[in-house]
């Protein structure tokens, strides 16, 4: 078991971290998905008495920033869980600790705060996707409903070929690009001989697409059903382990 695992892709170095994020060495960029900040606050605001404390996720983010010293933070969607609430204001306070850190957010389905709010909090918004060189970052490739990926990759997420629809966007047919996505909250289930098992969040690296684990520890996971032609790294308490 290691704290970080180096994943080399076309000479680029991606350091996977057990903080559920990934550091791109050449770009000095820390990349993560699905923070869902303000999730508990969202429930409390709606009258559900869930408990709430100082955000553990922000504390983990502090640790990751301390470890990698990135110039920028790239969030592949679902940074905030819902509309503005008091818990999200914790983030505004936190943001002031890192005035030099660039933050780029590729919008996910949960990111519904007003444009102005992102500006005020020093977050640069990308509407659908962002391309850097041969890499495309997008929150949701539609792997759940619309996918034009290989049979193997459909199988990975337990999809039936009948539910395939061809994406109209041409860039998705560009086989030279490699995708990084979030949204799925991938997890892996390990089974033992004696009817035992354990489910863990994981990184998924397929031939054309990589899926990052949810950064939030309140997000839950959906289990990947097959790992043909792919590498899977399970996230544990203190490190990563290739499965």
């Amino acid at each position: 078991m290691q704290e970080t695992i180096l994943q080399v892709h076309n000479d680029q170095h991606f350091w996977l971290s057990h903080f559920r994020c990934m550091y791109w060495e050449q770009q000095k960029m820390l990349i993560m998905a699905d923070l869902h900040l303000g999730k508990l606050g969202h429930f409390r605001k709606n009258g559900f008495a869930l408990p709430q404390g100082e955000s553990r996720d922000l504390a983990v983010l502090d640790q990751a920033i301390f470890m990698f010293k990135p110039n920028s933070l790239l969030i592949i969607g679902d940074m905030f869980h819902s509309k503005l609430n008091q818990e999200i204001q914790q983030f505004s306070v936190w943001r002031k600790k890192y005035p030099l850190l660039e933050i780029v957010l590729i919008k996910g389905n949960h990111d519904v705060l007003p444009q102005k709010w992102y500006q005020q909090n020093g977050i640069e918004l990308k509407e659908d996707l962002w391309q850097i060189g041969d890499y495309t970052f997008i929150h949701d490739l539609g792997l759940e409903q619309n996918n034009n990926f290989t049979k193997e990759e459909s199988a990975i997420f337990g999809l039936k070929s009948s539910s395939k629809k061809i994406f109209s966007n041409n860039f998705l047919h560009d086989t030279n690009t490699y995708f990084f996505t979030g949204h799925l909250h991938p997890g892996v289930h390990l089974k033992g001989r004696s009817k035992e098992g354990v489910t863990l969040p994981c990184f998924y690296f397929g031939p054309q697409v990589a899926v990052l684990p949810a950064f939030s520890h309140l997000a839950g996971v959906s289990v990947i059903k097959s790992k043909k032609n792919a590498r899977i790294y399970a996230v544990l308490q203190e490190g990563l382990m290739e499965i």
Binding site: R44, K45, A49, Q52, G53, Q86
Partner: peptide, 11 residues
């Protein structure tokens, strides 16, 4: 909403 009172709350 329980005892987890803090300054950031709109329960």
């Amino acid at each position: 909403g329980g005892t987890s009172l803090n300054s950031y709350d709109d329960y």
